[in-house]
Design a protein around this nucleic acid. Structure first.
Length: 197
DNA sequence: GGTGGGATTAGCT
DNA sequence: GCTAATCCCACCA
């Protein structure tokens, strides 16, 4: 690693072709990279939630395929981006086989590269809250609906390898009305960049 | 330091 | 019409 010139190695496709509950904890420590016109933005994923295709009322795909969630049914390795509360985007990594409807919501990242771009996108500077939350992360990374459905192995938005955190913690998912009893939120224990302890 | 409410839009019922 | 996997600020203690 040499800071701004660091090389990133893409994850193999197989990584994504598994259950969301398996992929979610393994995404911790991986690096999310967005090559924008203004420069490269990168961060280490520290918090993720799994949304399952079966028996999961909290999952957007639970009530079938719609225009909005269509990209959630793609083959694993693509992005599912949607708008929430009219003003925030949420970024998900699609997992599993085509037609399955599983994904992992990326909730928080630790800033790694392009911190000044993130701060400009967000309109504030505190690095701890730059990407600590799904809506914040998307705004900091410049992720919007234009990236919905695109491959995470071809860029401009992609995920690269990284070091697994030493301690991974599990908890119920945040903000759900239904399906909140499942322990499908995974985060790097002790990281100051997660959205909630 | 903790909390309550407003912002704002797509899609479902 | 209402809900949705949210964020931020104003206001109170």
């Amino acid at each position: 690693m040499q800071g701004e010139g660091a090389e990133f190695k893409l994850l193999p496709e197989d990584f994504y072709l598994r259950d969301a509950a398996r992929v979610a904890p393994e995404l911790l420590g991986k690096v999310l990279v967005h090559e924008t016109g203004a420069g490269r933005i990168a961060g280490t994923i520290v918090e993720a939630e799994a949304y399952l295709s079966r028996d999961d009322p909290g999952c957007h795909a639970a009530r079938g395929k719609t225009k909005r969630n269509a990209s959630m049914f793609f083959r694993g390795g693509r992005a599912y981006v949607y708008l929430i509360y009219g003003m925030y985007h949420c970024f998900n990594v699609v997992t599993g086989r085509e037609g399955e409807g599983e994904a992992v919501l990326i909730r928080a990242a630790a800033p790694l590269e392009g911190v000044s771009l993130m701060a400009a996108n967000r309109g504030r500077r505190d690095p701890r809250t730059l990407c600590s939350g799904p809506g914040r992360l998307c705004r900091a990374f410049g992720i919007d609906l234009a990236l919905n459905g695109c491959s995470l192995r071809e860029g401009p938005l992609f995920i690269a390898g990284g070091e697994k955190p030493s301690r991974i913690a599990v908890s119920p998912r945040i903000g759900l009305n239904r399906g909140r009893e499942k322990l499908l939120r995974f985060y790097a224990a002790g990281s100051p960049y997660i959205s909630r302890p």
